[in-house]
Design a protein around this nucleic acid. Sequence first.
DNA 1: AATCGCGCCTGACGGC
DNA 2: TGCCGTCAGGCGCGAT
Length: 271
Amino acid sequence: MPELPEVETTRLGITPHLLNQSIANVIVRQAKLRWTIPASLAAKLIGQTITAIDRRGKYLLISTTNGTMIMHLGMSGSLRIVPAATESGKHDHVDIVLANDSCLRLRDPRRFGAVLWQQNNPLQHKLLAKLGVEPLEHEFNGEYLFNASRQRKIAIKQFIMNSHIVVGVGNIYANEALFLAGIRPTIAAGRINRQRIDNLVTTIKNVLSKAIKAGGTTLRDFTASDGKPGYFQQQLNVYNRNNEPCYQCGSTIIMRQQNQRASYYCRHCQT
DNA sequence: AATCGCGCCTGACGGC
DNA sequence: TGCCGTCAGGCGCGAT
């Protein structure tokens, strides 16, 4: 499932293929993703030149002088650059065909992803306007997270996964960052002291940047943008390791549901 | 305002 | 083998 590092890796992978290229055609084979792809998308894009490929949280922003295509990869989405003539597979829902006969192809078996259009400043789009800070920017720091978490009774894991607080911390990296910070995922956010919050900010930044360097954690069906299966997963300390020994102390990793999501932690190392 | 739970969707997996 | 039920999971949204 693409998390922020996967999205960033994708962005870096596709950018050199797209930048300054002109769009010749848009093929939508399946418009029903999380939201229906706007029927006007092709008309907006055809003939336009791609001027920038940015990211906000897990949203990719592909801009032309005419406006911005906003993409989200959801749970199972991936983007690849293929020759335009490449036969499409079952879940290849959208092609952005370039004038140079190359093609940006969106594949998304579970269709939790999205392709939207925003005429003006994409950051003003309803889905982006209220997003929290970027985890790798300086604005995400101990002071910010400490202040934001005061009086909050929600568990720290749910808190750091709240995109209105900080974007791009998904289930895998939330579990991993909490382990590295020695914090139990179930502790109320508002009861964690400044020093431990500082520590958590550091581990979130570390775990995300390491994954970006590694090319993104890849589970199941993520595919790197060059089409090769991405296989550069960093060592996961707790995620998916229910009943296995903690690498740090040897005691058994616990799994429990938190807000319908799996939390993994070590009872001994995380307090 | 903060928190909770739902639902979208398909592939993988386990049980019989 | 094949069928079927269950699960995973980002995240917006409506309910509380």
